[in-house]
């Protein structure tokens, strides 16, 4: 797998270079025009953010109930990626909204719940960083609450009256829009898997350093 990092990162980057070309060729949406093309990066980022929150939550549950250190490292890595893809979602969304709705932000169910979910994962990272000894367990419990938010954020647009497009937009995309969209999703998922693997590798190396420090102190 380690040998495949380089080529796979190159493939992911190439996909990110090709994606805007495909997006540019996709037709303009009837009411929003050009600005709708933000959707091709905004939605895949949100999908990857949900996936990462789910991975972080499941790994945290395994760490809480079984105490597996590797699960804790996976959770930490995934938590950091929720923050990264969350910031992408929360920046690209308002850039689209400014043109589509005339305002940068609306305190509706989808936007507010996404912001809250992102802040829960930021708090998770802060607790991990500054919580001191034993903070891993407290942070793991927070990650469970963060994961519990995912279905709420997803269905919020269908339950409450909101200005945000509903979840029916993606399944009903025109065929000429589906191709670029799913290509962008594939690029984001591939890059996410690579970043997660790299980030878990970093945590494993840190664990090895701690082990070496203990070994050095014992001598």
């Amino acid at each position: 797998m380690k040998r495949a990092y380089g080529p796979l990162i190159v493939v992911a980057m190439l996909m990110f270079v090709v994606a805007p070309v495909l997006v540019a060729r996709a037709p303009f949406e009837a009411t929003m025009g050009m600005v709708q093309k933000i959707f091709y990066y905004h939605v895949p980022s949100a999908m990857v953010m949900f996936l990462s929150a789910f991975i972080c939550g499941v790994a945290s549950a395994i760490y809480l109930f079984k105490g597996t250190p590797r699960a804790d490292r996976v959770a930490f890595a995934a938590g950091e990626l929720v923050a990264l893809f969350g910031v992408i979602v929360l920046v690209t969304g308002p850039l689209w909204a400014r043109k589509a709705w005339g305002v940068w932000w609306q305190w509706d169910a989808r936007l507010t719940s996404t912001l809250l979910m992102w802040m829960i994962f930021l708090a998770y990272l802060l607790v991990r960083r500054y919580g001191g000894p034993g903070a891993e367990k407290l942070a793991a419990a927070m990650a469970l609450f963060g994961m519990a938010n995912v279905p709420f954020v997803y269905i919020s647009v269908n339950i409450w009256r909101t200005v945000h497009p509903t979840t029916r937009v993606v399944p009903t995309l025109a065929p000429s829009m589906k191709g670029p969209f799913w290509f962008a999703v594939a690029a984001f998922v591939l890059l996410y898997v690579l970043l997660l693997t790299l980030r878990i590798g970093l945590e494993e190396r840190r664990a090895q350093v701690e082990h070496l420090y203990l070994e050095a102190d014992e001598g």
Binding site: M34, K37, V91, L195, R199, G201, L202, R205
Partner: peptide
């Protein structure tokens, strides 16, 4: 719409590259 679109795509690229750079730096330090 064009400046908003360029800003969105540019931000995604910059955020991902900065994060990759930060992982590479942390890996080198460790």
């Amino acid at each position: 719409a064009a400046p908003l679109l360029v800003a969105a795509y540019g931000f995604v690229w910059v955020a991902l590259l900065v994060y990759l750079f930060s992982i590479w730096r942390r890996l080198s330090r460790v």
